[in-house]
């Protein structure tokens, strides 16, 4: 069943008035033709509408990179911070305003390379942040250098003979570091992504969603993909398997494929709550 048919059956909110959440004067956005970031942003806005959150109760924080331009286009409280340090800024905001829904928008290079340490410790603390990692396997903004998720053997401007560094699995790392909600989605499966993001927003604790999307300009052209559509079909559609289907498939069919959907979910004490009860409670003698 195609996603379009699913949209009809579920009576989802398309057509959707995105202008309600956007800063229309800032459009068109800077992302290249065919870039998946716009598709992910739309899924995020639909998920926010479904969550029923007020615009003023949301703070969107980002680092540096193509993905991190997102807060510039949305009409929430927004912050564009330093490369890799979005987690540190977001932690501060959440700490100062525990009732604020803080969403961190970051890329694979931003979160896993330069901000790797911040990412790990955000997960370890289990502070209530929704982290969306846009994984396009390249540093797009700076000219197509390989990133920590570039697959082995792939071409980038800094790996002309093929990448020799094994890629990270952001989900496995987040889970190992202690995040209480870990999921993966793709820009291709946009309705599924919308639901996954909604679940992440509702979860209390660090929720990490690794989102596979395509960079046709650098990654695509250097690795002989014909178009943005071709990338979406090969990397996002054929390269991933839903966790629900994965149990039924033989192991050889899962080889080299990434799992999609909610991969890990648990209840663990949240950092701000622990701080309020255990530290401030004792310090003030209440």
């Amino acid at each position: 069943m195609s996603e379009g048919t699913v949209a009809k059956k579920q009576k989802l909110s398309v057509p959707f008035d995105y202008d309600k959440y956007l800063r229309p004067k800032k459009l068109p956005h800077i992302w290249c033709p065919g870039c998946g970031h716009g598709i992910v942003l739309k899924a995020l806005l639909r998920a926010i509408e479904a969550s029923g959150l007020n615009k003023d109760d949301i703070c969107m924080v980002s680092g540096i990179g193509c993905s991190s331009r997102t807060p510039g286009y949305v009409d929430f409280n927004t912050m564009h911070s330093l490369h890799g340090r979005a987690f540190a800024f977001a932690t501060g905001i959440k700490f100062a305003k525990p009732n604020m829904k803080v969403i961190v928008i970051t890329g694979d290079g931003d979160a896993l390379a330069i901000g790797g340490n911040h990412f790990i410790h955000t997960c370890r603390r289990n502070i209530d942040l929704t982290v969306l990692v846009y994984t396009n396997a390249i540093y797009g903004m700076t000219g197509g250098q390989y990133s920590p998720t570039t697959p082995l053997g792939d071409i980038a401007t800094t790996s002309r003979y093929g990448n020799i560094e094994p890629p990270f699995d952001a989900c496995k790392m987040a889970e190992a570091a202690g995040a209480s909600f870990v999921a993966r989605g793709t820009a291709y499966h946009t309705l599924e992504l919308e639901k996954t993001i909604l679940e992440a927003i509702k979860h209390k604790g660090t929720s990490v969603v690794d989102i596979i999307d395509a960079c046709p300009t650098y990654y695509g052209r250097m690795n002989k993909y014909k178009s943005a559509t071709h990338m979406m079909e090969v990397i996002e559609k054929d390269g991933t398997v839903s966790v629900k289907q994965a149990d039924k498939l033989p192991p050889e069919k899962l080889e080299g494929k990434l799992l999609r959907g909610v991969l890990y979910k648990t209840d663990r004490p949240e950092y701000c709550e622990q701080y309020a009860t255990q530290v401030m409670g004792k310090a003030t003698g209440k």
């Binding site: 009809k8 398309v14 057509p15 959707f16 956007l22 970031h37 739309k42 946009t190």
Partner: peptide, 20 residues
């Protein structure tokens, strides 16, 4: 057009929508 909304869902640029 069958109003499947795929173009709307996958457009990265907020440029197309199918209104009934």
């Amino acid at each position: 057009c069958t109003r499947c909304q795929l173009c709307d869902l996958r457009c990265p640029d907020f440029a197309i929508s199918v209104i009934d």
